[in-house]
Amino acid sequence: MNKQLIKQPILEIRNLKTWFPIKRGIMARTAGYVKAVDGISMHLYKGETLGLVGESGCGKTTLGRTLLRLEKPQKGKILFLGKNLLDLKRKKLQEMRKRIQMIFQDPLTSLNPRMNVLDIVTEGLVEYKIIKKNKEDHAKRLMKEVGLDENSIYRYPHEFSGGQRQRISIARSISLKPDLLICDEPVSALDVSVQAQIINLLLDLRDSYNLSYIFISHDISIVSNIANRIAVMYLGKIVEQGPASDVINNPMHPYTKALINAVPTPGIYKKKKIVLKGETPSPSSPPPGCHFHTRCSEVMDICRKTAPQESKSGMRQVWCHLYKGIG
């Protein structure tokens, strides 16, 4: 097989910006923007899993929603299999939508309360005319895959526990066997044992259908179990990126260091813990220079004035003045 072909990224994002206007006063004039996603570039190969981690509110969900075109970006390109999703007209977009699915962060708001589970998990299959009959069988199979009782397909979302609801949302999103699955905190409401089962299910699906995942999670231990590559976000930007094991073994950016250090490990009592001090800066008027400088333990003079440029070494990229040399 042509190697070039294999290495064509399934997804490529170029300088993507999604800003939310802040409206003020009775005239609702725009007083500024929440720069939720502020100039992100990245790529994803077929069969690859990119772990996306970062502080709460740094723009992870917005990035995912923008890829689905649920949010309108200010700027940038989203190339899916070479085509810019932002240029697609409705019909073509509909086609593409089938191939990109998302497991939403909050299952309660993303599941229609008036639909029973049978209809929820087979909605896509019916809409795209993949199945015509035997809806029940398909629903039962999907329920089984995510470890839910197959006899509960006539129940409604509110009749399930939080973790069960999250699995319903997972069942729905894998029903179409998409090429790209954006998982937004897919296992955060699940206990460790079910979590492990779901992660294993995602790994199996990846292996059998060569799916690609963007795996958003606040839990870097989980990410480390599934991701090939990790991208770390801070305030709308990627600050570090590289192969998962490298990033975890040898975090370079001070924010990544804090993130990895803060992971509580059962049975190990950490004496020295880096707790990030200081307020989370505002995404509408981020600090000048390096966005992290207000909380960075290694801050230098230059950090307060100049935004760090990318330093690259092999597969690693980091945006921090400490690493000016390596590029």
Partner: peptide, 27 residues
């Protein structure tokens, strides 16, 4: 079993060790 399936910060992606089987339905 629960304690065994806790994900560890690992440097290698791979399968986790869940408790085999699923919680039975309350019925």
């Amino acid at each position: 079993g629960l304690l065994k399936s806790v994900p560890k910060l690992s440097t290698e992606a791979g399968r986790l060790m869940p408790i085999p089987g699923f919680v039975p339905s309350p019925f």
